[in-house]
Simulated assay, not measured.
Amino acid sequence: MSFSCTNHLPLDSSAPLLCAGITVYYPLRFYGLDKPGMHVGVVGLGYLGHVAMKFAKAMGVKVTVISTSPSKKKEAMEHLGADSFLVSKEQDQM
């Protein structure tokens, strides 16, 4: 049996938001980086980076993903909606 906090959001699917979610949500709010039109950089596109991207985009913030892996560009731009993508190993991009 699956318990849920709503009829549409099972706890086993939403539980990760409690840790990773607050880890990235709180700094966005605390430092005032949650206003539409602002621009933030997300370093790395691992688990926290994914969550940070989703929160920032939901807040209307422009997001640049900074990664060492060029292969993550498509995911960042097409699937998560990043506004720009930089490869940190590329001197001309930094």
Score class of each variant (00 low, 15 high):
residue 69 S to A: 06
residue 20 A to L: 08
residue 89 K to A: 09
residue 52 A to I: 04
residue 77 M to F: 04
residue 55 F to A: 00
residue 50 H to N: 09
residue 68 T to K: 10
residue 53 M to T: 08
residue 59 M to V: 06
residue 38 M to H: 15
residue 74 K to D: 03
residue 81 G to W: 06
residue 56 A to W: 03
residue 59 M to N: 06
residue 80 L to Y: 10
residue 82 A to T: 06
residue 4 S to Q: 12
residue 64 T to L: 05
residue 52 A to Q: 06
residue 46 G to N: 07
residue 51 V to D: 00
residue 86 L to G: 04
residue 43 V to E: 09
residue 93 Q to P: 08
residue 33 L to W: 13
residue 3 F to V: 15
residue 72 K to C: 02
residue 34 D to F: 09
residue 29 R to I: 13
residue 53 M to H: 04
residue 67 S to C: 02
residue 72 K to H: 04
residue 85 F to S: 03
residue 79 H to L: 14
residue 21 G to P: 02
residue 69 S to I: 01
residue 24 V to A: 00
residue 94 M to S: 08
residue 26 Y to A: 15
residue 59 M to D: 08
residue 65 V to W: 05
residue 88 S to L: 10
residue 69 S to P: 05
residue 90 E to D: 09
residue 72 K to S: 06
residue 81 G to A: 07
residue 39 H to Q: 12
residue 42 V to I: 12
residue 73 K to L: 01
residue 22 I to S: 15
residue 86 L to A: 12
residue 45 L to G: 01
residue 15 A to W: 13
residue 3 F to A: 14
residue 40 V to E: 06
residue 20 A to C: 15
residue 24 V to G: 00
residue 84 S to R: 13
residue 94 M to T: 12
residue 65 V to I: 15
residue 33 L to Q: 13
residue 78 E to I: 11
residue 47 Y to S: 12
residue 5 C to K: 13
residue 34 D to R: 11
residue 21 G to C: 07
residue 66 I to T: 05
residue 37 G to E: 03
residue 6 T to S: 15
residue 4 S to C: 10
residue 25 Y to D: 02
residue 17 L to T: 02
residue 77 M to L: 12
residue 7 N to S: 14
residue 87 V to Y: 00
residue 69 S to W: 00
residue 66 I to W: 07
residue 83 D to T: 07
residue 73 K to E: 01
residue 25 Y to W: 12
residue 65 V to R: 08
residue 10 P to E: 11
residue 38 M to V: 12
residue 76 A to Y: 08
residue 19 C to Y: 04
residue 60 G to K: 11
residue 64 T to V: 08
residue 94 M to W: 14
residue 69 S to D: 11
residue 77 M to I: 13
residue 32 G to D: 13
residue 52 A to K: 05
residue 57 K to T: 01
residue 28 L to A: 10
residue 67 S to T: 03
residue 64 T to C: 05
residue 51 V to Y: 00
residue 84 S to K: 12
residue 93 Q to C: 02
